[in-house]
Design a protein around this nucleic acid. Structure first.
Lengths: 331, 331
DNA sequence: GTGAAAGCGCTAACAA
DNA sequence: TTGTTAGCGCTTTCAC
């Protein structure tokens, strides 16, 4: 049975200095490649560091140089959702180019947890915060650190945001279906408390109204939050006496649920889904597409500008959407 | 034009103490809920902290208490790949339960970059490192910090690992196809330099050999690394004078490429893909499935045990696979 | 109950 | 070119 080893502390700079027979500061200079160190001493210090397996202590350095870390936090839903992971991918790439590190945390779609995560990240002195709000609560940014909201604008404050053209995308989806003669178009939406879903519903609704199609409420289903439920909802819609001839689902999860419900049915209603995803092309699915990774990259760039000292007023960037016809929306 | 504001430093504990009219240590005690603080003092200190918008400086605390952070690093490929994001999701969930934070970095499938990322994370004093090796280089763990390898065992050292039953899964895929009478079975594989791909090829090969089917090399394609190339490779295979009647693709990306190439063709060879993914059910795709999220959770738990002081010998956990027949492998 | 002093590992400012 | 001193913001020790 292995003895309870005392946690062996990593070697420190002063140990390296002692071993190399120089002062602390000289060792520091040598290892950081600062000028005014003779080649010989630098060699000796480096050798000593290697022998000891020395690693710089970034915490101590950051504390000394300003108590601010190289970390940027991203608070989002579960990374298993491709939307969030695409955003994270864009964020990470952009940060890494600047030598910043990404800390990802899952809010579990829970506003309270989200607030405590903000606290945890702020305590760790992240240099910026990127948030895809859960919609369940308010993320207060009383912390004076740069904060960029993604996909959903913050509740109750003005701040940097990167949004998708939700209303525009949903509008074009409705127009697309209306132009093909559909009248009974069902709308399957996620939690309406989120601004993005609200905008998608509004955009859809506006297009329907413009077309003089006002009696579609019987085909409206909201607060559908997972694929399984979406499937059930679609089955239920298709079982109506006057079933819809077309469906619009307002995010990838719901679209996937709808696809499952449609599988193997004789009657295939037209289907347009918000969010593109892998294999949508193979499935011949018409979607409202947008560059999800760019959403993250853009947010990261905005945060980096703030970190760099930019102090202009909050900005909102809207990422456009494109309708990609692949068959399911044209039948 | 806004003046160049001096970076305003966040308030410190001693400022809080001064404002509350107590000593530094008393303020510390009050805010940390330690005993031996009178209720009145605690109230005063808390009030002062609120007024100043004080946040504890986690860096300073960690430096003082042991120079070790609450961070765990995950080095993987692009999170836009659902395999990696599923792993990350499992890791994050497990870490968060313990109050640890996940730092994710993308190795860009580049061994050299990977090594420098390890350095960067070690300097930040992460408490553990989880690595999905790129296969392009060796991750040296001379840092004496807990390290768990995921999906691919480390090159040249023995360490904690969580692997998928690659050989077994590939073996069962081949058996499945052989049992349905296929003889000309093509194998489309990713970079053979990775151990996981090697194991999948070996498993497949062993099953073929057991069945006395030894002349399948003409249908072997390796080092296919993206979906587009996989599609081209499949098209090329099907254009052979004696085209394969079945395909086995060794990861989700290649499977997707194959699906694209197969789309709209008159002749549909049987297809089994390694890795399950969303919508595979809708597509009627037979896959070798495994619990990817569990891969991450398990790795995180192993790392947490090491952080907790466990010093036993390195362990290897193998996550099982299941063949899920959905039609494409049975035709 | 409370406080003063020391020090975590490092770098900035100033000597030598 | 090198070394000394101080101190980042906090917790630990020990004294009051």
């Amino acid at each position: 049975m292995p003895a309870e080893e005392p946690p062996v502390r990593p070697p420190t700079l002063s140990q390296v200095a002692a071993r190399a027979g120089v002062s602390l500061k000289t060792a520091s200079r040598a290892l950081n490649g600062e000028p005014y160190v003779s080649g010989a001493t630098e060699q000796r210090v480096r050798a000593a560091a290697d022998e000891l397996g020395y690693r710089l202590n970034g915490l101590a350095r950051e504390l000394r140089t300003g108590a601010t870390s190289a970390l940027v936090g991203l608070i989002s839903g579960d990374l298993a959702n491709p939307f969030y992971s695409a955003v994270a991918s864009g964020v990470e790439r952009e940060l890494r180019r600047r030598g910043l590190l990404l800390v990802t945390v899952n809010n579990d779609e829970n506003g309270e947890l989200e607030s405590s995560l903000v606290e945890a990240l702020v305590e760790r002195r992240v240099r910026a915060l990127l948030v895809i709000p859960s919609g369940g609560g308010i993320v207060a940014n009383s912390h004076n650190i740069p904060c960029v909201f993604i996909d959903r604008p913050p509740v109750g404050l003005v701040a940097d945001s990167v949004l998708i053209d939700n209303a525009g995308g949903a509008h074009s989806a409705a127009e697309h279906l209306l132009a093909r003669g559909h009248r009974r178009i069902a709308l399957v939406a996620d939690l309406v408390r989120t601004a993005s879903q609200q905008a998608r519903i509004n955009g859809f609704s506006a297009a329907m109204r413009s077309a003089g199609n006002v009696d579609w409420e019987p085909y409206l289903r909201t607060d559908v939050h997972d694929a399984a439920t979406a499937g059930d909802v679609v089955s239920e819609l298709l079982a109506l006496p006057e079933p819809p001839t077309a469906l619009f689902t307002t995010n990838n999860r719901l679209t996937i649920g709808a696809l499952r419900a449609l599988r193997g049915r004789r009657f295939q209603p037209a289907l347009v889904g918000f969010d593109d995803f892998e294999l949508a092309d193979v499935l011949g699915l018409t979607v409202i597409s947008h560059d999800t990774t760019e959403l993250g990259s853009m947010a990261a760039r905005m945060a980096i500008e703030r970190i760099g000292g930019y102090t202009g007023p909050p900005r909102t960037v809207v990422i456009p959407t494109t309708l990609i016809p692949r068959g399911s929306g044209e039948r």
